[in-house]
Amino acid sequence: MVGIEYITLIETLLQYFFVVGLSPLFAGIFHRAKSIIESKKGPSIFQPYYDLAKLLKKETLKPSGSGIIFIYAPYVAFGIYSLISIIIPVLIPAPIYFTASADFLGGAIMFSLAAFVKVAAAMGSNSNYSALGVSRMLSFNFLSEGTLITVFFAVSLITATNNPYTTNHFLAANPLQNISIVHIFSTLAFFMLFLYETGKLPLESAGLQELGMIDEAANYEYSGKLLAINKWNSYIKQYLLGSVLLNVFLVPWGLSAASPWFLLDIPVMFAKWLLLIGIVLVVETTLAKLRLFRVLDYLATAFTFSILFLIFTEVIV
């Protein structure tokens, strides 16, 4: 019994440090691969680490008139993402410590909470650019949050439970369920949401260009250590959403919780992420850049898919 708990502890620590420590690496691999496709040399895959190290050493400037939320929000968001990283199956496919803290819907609500904290901090910075970006972000988020919660809600209907681990096991054990029309719909909706939430849509300028930025605007007034933490948060968020997409929707196979095979989960997750990066790259580099107001149409499509999926789950029995 003690041995089992010992393994669970190791698995918990492994999952946490894997997520927090290696999430910038996946962002680095993505940028490097994208540059190669665009016929550029591109930065090193470790560039996100260099950026974080540089920012952590820099002085933090606080805009005049900004409140206490502005300073502490990045830490709070980091805490929220840390908790999410040990309650959903992003590496180990069996319950670990803290898994019982929340279910699928709870995880979705914590993502929303982190987004709220980020918005509150950006509004507290007293910057017009931040306010502009936040207002854009919120006018789109009402559909994206709806999609996120609907997809999670609908997934639970397949297995009659809101536990992502059960869903993962069920889909891994029943391969035919993965090609059912309801599952395909939900995967599509979640994939579209993943592209939006991680700023991979070909209609958002990733740089700090005022006309195109949505997500970057919330970081506009941040500098130094706080900016580093915010960037780290976005890397972790990208990893978490991507891993849920991979482990629950796209490729639920290949992970093991038995000792010592759980160590093999690390290369398996790497392989899965390379697959996801490949898919995202194809989408991002082949679609033409769209106009900003089209985000709403895009998210409405994702929302429609998720609701249709919900209805079909009920109708197709």
Binding site: A300, T304, L308, I311, E314
Partner: peptide, 18 residues
């Protein structure tokens, strides 16, 4: 053509059909 508006109304129609 406002896709978001049209899709949301269409969803209501699907729900009505159900």
């Amino acid at each position: 053509v406002s896709v978001a508006y049209l899709f949301l109304i269409s969803l209501i129609f699907v729900l009505t059909a159900v």
